[in-house]
Design a protein around this nucleic acid. Structure first.
Length: 804
RNA sequence: GCCGCGGUGCUGGAAUCGGCAGACAGGACGGACUUAAAAUCCGUUGGGCCUAGCCCGUGUGGGUUCAAUUCCCACCCGCGGCACCA
């Protein structure tokens, strides 16, 4: 009987579906394990083999955990709001709902034929109104708690997508979605106060089992820095410029002050500035620069002095000059800096260019530093700093800050690079924001009982480009009566960004039908947090940061019980095309799982995806490798079938089988999937080379171990060797050390650290006996002949090294 | 520039509480079967040489050690992230 994967896989997939084999019970006696994939966007081209690398890995984990006696929650759903479906609608007039539904059907089919063991009774879809009802509900709660506000802000604008974007969505000055260069645009926006959670988002990273680089990226993105705000008075104006600095220790070296071009102070003091024409020219130019231009100009600073203005350094009362320059960012700190050219690279560069004084105030502990060529930016010891001279930088920061604080010139301050999150999009295919704008009452949130606010159908999906979404054109939807006063009012027409639905989806799986509360608290306590979360690293500062923020908020209002949503995170490495390029539709190098399953079967696909290499690493697809895995599975099939009438294995095979259990368990524990597959292959090669002695007892063990990787073939073999029930119902294995043959060992024999021989001994041999045997061996005698033995190193059971 | 990760045969990779470098797989080459091909099976496959055997070899240079892919120092290269954040 041959290995007919097509027939076998169909048979078992039908069985699992019919019997709901993978259904999760909310409350059972078992311990829980929640293993989650990042849910996909249901794209029209379907998923490629790269997506499945992650899905197979979590599926392997889910299947093992079930066998280990856990109640496993392993769900899947669709993150279906987003631009591709909307852009498709613009082109074709077909409603995104229809395209989305079709795409979901296709992808779901791909997942089923791969044998992924999701509990499909828990499928969710973020565009379902019963789902986004609760996305809207969370928004209302954020609003109620003063974490959502509306404000005109110069935000990133994508001229092609015609929508505002968050900082996280702009990559190198370009729109993350379409690659168009972004501009700045003043739009009245809904903003979420993520900065309120900056410290907690930062601190709690330490409690998470996540890849270090993802944590590091979040830390950098949040960008906390501690320092001081220091007031510089502007002479004869009564006006004050406040700067932010982390280097208060260098205050005596401040030789000028720089303002951002957007600074209000500049406009306010217009009349005092003698070269106003020049200044306003500069400001105008700076404002018109795109982000991309600014980035490309990082080297080569420009600026203009505000002539007629003098700022007073509060530490010594000295006059310093005042500049505007676009190397100072309005959006960070106070939009003004004190310039210390001797100890800051940018200030140094600027000072050289405009011939400004450079005063050295910090020296390294030992020896001199040369500040004629470049700034000395490290900490050191103070010089030229009045009573603070000789202090170390760290103490001086504190001392100078405190002394100014006493006089009312300074305050300690913590700044973040993280900005609040612009939360409105001027597009159609997103969750409507449940807000009404009333002429007399202002902003009026919808009442909870009126949720969901459903997304109405429109005729035209084109973005308007005006700061309104296409919803603005539907008059009978937009125009409403104010729920408070009954007067004329309009609905908010912006929609939520694509990240909204994914911020909390992992909670909906716990309780998908609930229309009373967004998650039942017993179920939440039962299942949270997610024990293992697997997905791509590209979400490091988007989805993963946003959802942590929402989760912490939900914790604060008492609807979830954990501080963090995802306890353990692992990233999938990309699957590249065979040419080492990224798979993309445009390059035509995409491998779909369907074609692999068709030619070699789902089990081959699964085992190959795990065998390719470490699963967090980017690796190229190799069709030959797929064939190799298929050969392996065929050989497994043949061996099991040929030996199914043998009851007991030889003691040697029994021993190898136990060793296999141990090795597979050890590596799976470490989230390694490629080496267990290699161990399976080694084992099969061993059996194949020693034909006698492989019995049903060992076959049963092997089938159980292989099952999480290749579930279809294993269920089939289980049945064919005459076993009852399903493999998936069997208990996972732990090795029995007493069955591992360990009476003989191969001792590595070295002379002066070089391997000269290998000798077989009883495993418990001691140094004295080993040494004696080794010295008497012909091979070794040759090497130590005529030499004086200085030392003998003996590593029990492993190695003996004679140093001569 | 800063931060993180990495560098091992022809290729993907294995081996790090320091102890046989190259497991496993692919490819290539040789052979068996076949009219032939595919499939399957057997063998060889890091480099070198004076080829029973020895020497060299894990990015480079140094160090610690009986012993280093593994630990330490300096550097080179690649990938990813951040990037005028004061």
């Amino acid at each position: 009987m041959n290995y007919n994967f097509t027939e076998i896989e169909k048979k078992w997939q039908d069985y699992w579906e019919k019997n709901k084999t993978n259904k999760t019970n909310d409350f059972s006696e078992k311990k829980k394990y929640y293993v989650l994939d990042m849910f996909p966007y249901p794209s029209g081209v379907g998923l490629h083999v790269g997506h499945f690398k992650g899905y197979v890995a979590t599926d392997v984990v889910a299947r093992i955990k079930r066998m280990q006696g856990f109640e496993v929650l392993h769900p899947m759903g669709w993150d279906a709001f987003g631009l591709p479906a909307e852009n498709f609608a613009i082109k074709t007039g077909i409603h995104p709902e229809i395209t989305t539904e079709k795409n979901i059907e296709n992808i779901k089919h791909q997942m089923k034929i791969a044998g992924l063991s999701y509990d499909w009774d828990r499928e969710i879809n973020t565009t379902d109104k019963d789902y986004y009802k609760w996305t809207q509900w969370i928004f209302l709660k954020l609003y109620e708690n003063n974490l959502a506000y509306k404000k005109i802000l110069p935000i990133n604008w994508c001229p092609s997508c015609k929508t505002g974007l968050a900082n996280e969505e702009v990559v190198n000055g370009k729109c993350e979605r379409c690659g168009t260069e972004t501009t700045k645009k003043d739009i009245k926006q809904w903003i979420l106060k993520i900065t309120e959670y900056a410290d907690r988002l930062l601190e709690d990273l330490d409690t998470l089992d996540w890849p270090e680089r993802i944590k590091e990226m979040q830390r950098n993105w949040i960008g906390r820095s501690e320092g001081w705000e220091i007031d510089f008075g502007i002479e004869d104006t009564g006006r004050v410029v406040t700067v932010f600095t982390t280097r208060a220790d260098t205050l005596f070296g401040c030789t000028y002050v720089v303002l951002a071009p957007e600074s209000e102070v500049v406009l306010e003091l217009k009349n005092k500035i003698s070269n106003w024409d020049e200044v306003s020219d500069y400001i105008e130019k700076a404002k018109n620069k795109s982000d991309l231009e600014r980035i490309s100009e990082v080297k080569g600073k420009s600026g203009v002095e505000l002539k007629g203005l003098k700022a007073i350094n509060p530490i010594n009362g000295k006059d310093v000059r005042v500049f505007v320059a676009d190397y100072v960012l309005a959006s960070y700190g106070t939009g003004a800096v004190m310039a210390v050219p001797a100890h800051d690279e940018r200030d140094f560069e600027f000072a050289i260019k405009y011939d400004l004084p450079v005063i050295e105030v910090v020296r390294p502990k030992n020896g001199d530093s040369d500040i004629s060529e470049s700034a000395f930016i490290q900490d050191g010891y103070l010089i030229n700093s009045d009573t603070f001279t000789d202090m170390d930088s760290e103490s001086a920061r504190k001392a100078i800050g405190e002394s100014l604080k006493e006089e009312g010139f300074a305050r300690p301050k913590i700044n973040y690079k993280l900005h609040d999150w612009p939360f409105s999009r001027q597009r159609y295919w997103g969750e409507p924001i449940p807000i009404i704008h009333c002429n007399s009452c202002g902003i009026v949130p919808l009442e909870e009982k009126n949720l969901p606010l459903t997304l109405p159908h429109v005729d035209k999906y084109e973005p308007t480009g005006t700061g309104e979404s296409p919803l603005a054109a539907i008059e009978n939807w937009v125009n409403v009566k104010c729920p408070k006063c009954g007067g004329d009012a309009k609905r908010e027409t912006n929609t939520m960004p694509q990240w909204a639905g994914s911020c909390w989806y992992y909670l909906r799986y716990l309780d998908i039908k609930n229309d009373r509360v967004f998650v039942d608290s017993e179920k939440e306590k039962r299942w949270m947090p997610v024990d293992l979360y697997v997905g791509g690293a590209e979400h490091a500062v988007l989805h993963l940061l946003y959802s942590r923020f929402w989760h912490k908020f939900l914790f604060d209002i008492g609807v979830v019980s954990t501080k963090e949503p995802f306890q353990k995170l692992r990233n999938i490495g990309l699957v590249l095309a065979h040419d080492g390029q990224k798979m993309s539709k445009s390059k035509g190098n995409v491998i779909s799982p369907d074609s692999v399953i068709d030619s070699f079967g789902a089990d081959t696909l699964r085992v190959y995806e795990m065998f390719m290499g470490p699963f967090d690493q980017a690796i190229g697809w190799n069709e030959q490798g797929v064939k190799g895995v298929n050969r392996f599975l065929t050989r497994v099939w043949d061996i099991v079938m040929e030996n199914k009438n043998i009851t007991n294995s030889s003691s040697e095979v029994v021993s190898e089988t136990q060793k296999l259990i141990k090795k597979v368990n050890d590596d799976l524990e470490k989230m390694k999937f490629n080496t267990p597959v290699a161990f399976f292959m080694e084992y099969v090669n061993f059996i194949y080379d020693n034909k006698a002695g492989f019995g049903k007892d060992s076959a049963k063990i092997f089938i159980k171990l292989l099952f999480p990787f290749a579930p279809h073939i294993c269920e089939e073999m289980w049945q064919l060797i005459g076993e009852q029930g399903l493999v998936s119902e069997q208990e996972w294995l732990t090795p029995d050390a007493s069955l591992i043959k360990a009476d003989k060992i191969i001792l590595i024999v070295q002379v002066n650290g070089k391997v000269r021989d290998r000798m077989e001994f009883d495993s418990d041999i001691d140094q004295v006996k080993a040494e004696e045997a080794v010295r008497n061996s012909e091979v070794i005698a040759k090497w130590i002949k005529g030499k004086k033995i200085k030392k003998v190193i003996f590593a029990q059971g492993k190695l003996i090294n004679i140093v001569a």
